[in-house]
Nucleic acid binder design. Structure first.
Lengths: 205, 205, 205, 205
DNA sequence: GATGAATGAGTGTTCATTCAT
DNA sequence: GATGAATGAACACTCATTCAT
């Protein structure tokens, strides 16, 4: 019992540090996101941080895992709350953008200073994320088929892969300090984009 | 005459340094791409580098400009060598990917450590790039219209904006050290994506 | 208790670093007195020094404060140990010389590389020093008057101001770029000083 | 003839550089007064400066010599234009202040980075200055005596030495590493000075 | 005579990491 | 468990000086 509650406290503390790390890395990037800032945000000493995590890389890995988890929790909850293929498809395209926008470039940056060991772990994590995303998309397209909304010209596998991969892209050439405006712009553009994907641009002859 | 050849040598040296900088920044990112590494790659002393450039930021700006220039030279040359709307559209989508993939996340990262003055210059440069890209896309769609290939349901402006913005996104969650494979994967995926954009996913009827 | 002894150790270490800084700056001046030398003299790592002090400027400020403190402790102790106006006046003139000789030109030099924030603090410190010195001089002259040793031809205020300013060898708390004003002030004061040298301050009897 | 005019040009150029150096050193101090700034102010290339002068120290020496020369030219011209002991004494005290104020702390600072060879030359230069100043003072006091204005209680030699040394704001021509001796000398001289302040130098009548 | 180009040696400062307590 | 204190290694940047032309 005591063990459990102790472990609980420990895990809760770890979680707090990871959350702080996620915020600091999201704001400043990997290189500029310093251990000192994270410790300060978590309101602990720098050395304490090293009691819980082996290195900056290890902590970053945990922050990435947390971001992934929040991302999927959010997306799946929202998709579940909607009805019909089109509505769900739109949601599935829209929601990832902010997460991608905030976290992916940092992932990218981090890779450059990562030792092999962590790169492999990162890869594994990303493969897991890709799979989960693909599942979501796959399920959605099957619903679309059942609803007779989706053209059956394309294979499911390829289609969900492609949609997933493009979902993982984002408008990057923007000012980090003006995220709100960008987000609004992106969200408006998405409607057009989605129309484009839904109806295509070529004339039928 | 002598003046010209002297300036020429000087400019050639500057260009070499910028090239070295572009490579180092592309490989290591902005924060981890050190002046020392760049100087070593350019085979000059660190202090010499400061004879040619005022600061790391200034040098980075030049590296970004070079990447932009190479990007547009490449894309426009390739598009010009192809015939017909579809072929050109495919090229215009495919080629940017590698450049975006290599340079955009670094741009992102750099912003975090950039002083106001350089941010403004960066913005200007990006606006220029956006405009030039938009022009390419716009011209292409007009050709598509003339060829009666493109559906006229969408406004040109909106359409070229959207296509441009999505063109500026890229598959980021990949291993920087295995770019070749990723690039191949991306290029395969793009065909499917392009089909998708060209024909849409919804059944007509 | 433990708190106190811990703080004590910390403060003692800080004090050691400040002392080392004071010595290095006194020997080499501000620009040539390097952080590395100070750390070496204090037998700590350079980075450790930055654990205790924010910057070279901040450390220099502390060194100046220490010099001031030692200066006044010394001068006031010695004056207190003597009897009679003449003896005390001699002491009050003699003692400052060494401190001025050792520290003032360095203060001067430092101003050139100091940011605004520290200049203001320096000003405050110097104003405090001026006041404390003026008090010492004023008290002494009142004693001299009481002893009927000092000629009452000069006003106390003006006299102690002038003696103080000249004792400080030059008005230092001035903007290097506003030398004209300072020069005018000094030149006015000089008349009083010259009277003093020409006629002396002691009553003839 | 041609030789002479060439030498003339050469000397004129040297003089321009020295003037620039004097100004830069006066403004920024020795350490912060950079060769680059001086070359820019003299409107020549940095390398050209090294064609005319061996090193920063050598150039500084010349700047000091120039300051000395201007100082004496100025002071002697002004004293000569005045009549009577008191007027001349006032001038002799007033004029040095600006020069001292502007140049002495820099001299001080420079010693710290000077190699032996230049320190000796500096010493020589200062000894020359001292002598010339002493002569001026000596002459003045003889006039004062002749005018029966000056009290004969003080020896000429001692008096003019003391006045000179104090005018120099502090005995500078000393080895920083042998401060003890200097301090002792100053402390002895102070007694004379203090007598002077206490009793004045003018005869009562 | 004049200098553009080049640099080695050094500066102040940062930061992930360790260790004694 | 927790941390204050300490640091090595690195970084961007400066500057007096040199050298080929």
């Amino acid at each position: 019992m005591e063990e459990i509650s102790t472990n609980d406290t420990l895990e809760r503390k770890k979680a707090m540090i990871i959350k702080a790390a996620m915020e600091v890395f999201a704001q400043n990037g990997y290189a500029k996101g310093s251990i000192g800032d994270i410790a300060a945000k978590a309101e602990i000493g720098k050395a304490t941080l090293y009691y819980y995590f082996d290195s900056k890389e290890a902590l970053f890995m945990e922050a990435v895992k947390l971001a992934y988890q929040l991302f999927f929790e959010n997306i799946e909850k929202q998709v579940a709350s909607l009805v019909g293929f089109e509505a769900r498809f739109r949601a599935l395209v829209r929601i990832p953008i902010r997460y991608i926008y905030e976290h992916v470039p940092i992932l990218f940056e981090a890779r450059n200073s990562f030792p092999e060991a962590y790169l492999a772990e990162l890869e594994t994590l990303q493969e897991y994320g890709r799979q989960r995303m693909r599942n979501n998309i796959h399920r959605l397209f099957q619903e679309g088929l059942a609803e007779k909304k989706v053209d059956d010209r394309f294979s499911f596998e390829a289609l969900s892969n492609v949609v997933h991969d493009w979902m993982m892209m984002a408008e990057l050439n923007c000012d980090l300090h003006e995220r709100q405006m960008i987000m609004q712009k992106l969200e408006k553009e998405q409607d057009l984009l989605i129309d484009l994907v839904l109806y295509g641009i070529l004339k039928r002859g």
